[in-house]
Design a protein around this nucleic acid. Structure first.
Lengths: 231, 231
DNA sequence: CTGCATCCGGGCCGATACTG
DNA sequence: CAGTATCGGCCCGGATGCAG
């Protein structure tokens, strides 16, 4: 179990008893992309100590969040996979601190792009422009493909990309999310080839406004202390 | 900031840099009920050390999640209030470990009931039966009121309750969530007065099935490692 | 080489005492 | 009431060792 159980009869506290420890949710993030071996988890979790990874894997396994399949592969249980929603909700909440603060000295792994892009291009939009975008980032090459209203990211080169993006992840993400225009992205170190303005037609019409909301405005919050009905 | 920043350019990691520390999300839980003074936070967070509460309040304040208003009152910023969704998502995910494991030696505070009840009775259901339920728990008395399709919980006695429930929180919650029938709840120490079967008409027709899902079933998860479009 | 276990220093956590 | 100060213990983090 966790560092120590909170010992509170509360759903949130019990959730944190299971996945509230340091690194635990990031391990789940890695496993959301599918089963992974130990070494791959280490690579996807820069900064973690090997013993900590082993400890967390044991904890999560005992709690029923992951399971230790054959070939030393770890995978999420069905219950563990249901963490995708709370995890994406937390990530969406953190959009301001991602967009407002540049990459800095933070590490990055190319496969992390899949999650924010899944949020940005969520769902099916029949009006979405079909196109192919090749992305060079972190010494890796990935392909963003729009077809039949859906957008998917896969690893590897594209055959005939309409746009090629190469540069730091924050510039790529800022451009794809619509937070940066092409010239600003270029100033941030992004190399753009092709019809960049077509990228705007990948995003659905109504776009995440949270990215532009101010984090530090002052305003009173609700005063009722019980029974707020959340629709 | 946190114990130490993960140093990863990833929305989830940056979210955890802000609210990933021990107790942080539970402090946010307390403040979701409205502004609170220091002492009230201590009462609502059984087990926390005073210095840790002070540290976390400072961190959250620096990060822009909460603000220190007049009269030593702490309140969520607008950005902090947006944590309600990720937090409820985590709590919903933990329903199995709440329903399957009894209260045990865990502590409980009556105002915590507001959150699970808000989830159980979320939204407006015009067909919902109007009624009043008085709840005695943790040496406290609260009133669950159904009117105009909405269900609200407030502290204090009811004037003419159709049902009065008195007992341990797990029995109360199990009964209200429909996980326990009346006789089982009584066996768990619950005192029931009035037309208990009317309680079933408080819940919407489609009910949280997650509560009954098995936590430890074995099944392969998805294999695609990138670009899963979450509708 | 992968998949851990062991060891150890530093820092956070947790309990208590203390101050304005 | 609202915190600050202090101190043990344990977890975290990094390095290293070792078995398959």
């Amino acid at each position: 179990m966790a560092v120590k159980s909170y010992g509170q009869y509360c759903a949130l506290a019990r959730a944190l008893d299971v996945v509230g420890d340091r690194w635990s949710l990031l391990i789940v993030r890695e496993l959301l992309d599918g089963p992974a071996r130990y070494r791959r988890l280490l690579d996807g979790l820069p900064g973690i100590a090997t013993n900590l990874l082993a400890d967390r894997l044991r904890q999560l396994s005992d709690a029923g969040v992951i399971e230790h399949g054959g070939h030393a592969e770890y995978r999420l249980t069905p219950w563990g996979q249901e963490l995708r929603e709370p995890l994406y909700a937390l990530a969406r909440w953190a959009v301001p601190v991602v967009m407002r603060r540049p990459l800095g000295t933070d590490t990055f792994r190319s496969h992390w792009l899949a999650h924010p892009l899944a949020v940005i291009y969520a769902g099916c939009d029949p009006a979405r422009r079909p196109m192919t975008v090749e992305i060079h980032v972190d010494g890796d090459i990935m392909t963003l493909q729009s077809a039949n209203g859906y957008v998917e990211l896969r690893s590897g080169k594209a055959t005939k990309p309409e746009v090629v993006l190469a540069g730091p992840p924050d510039a790529i993400l800022g451009l794809l999310a619509g937070q940066l225009d092409a010239s600003t992205a270029k100033a941030a170190g992004l190399d753009i080839t092709g019809r960049v303005h077509h990228l705007a037609e990948l995003r659905p019409t109504t776009l995440l406004r949270a990215a532009t909301s101010d984090m530090s405005t002052n305003e009173a919050n609700g005063t009722s202390d019980v029974g707020r009905c959340t629709s």
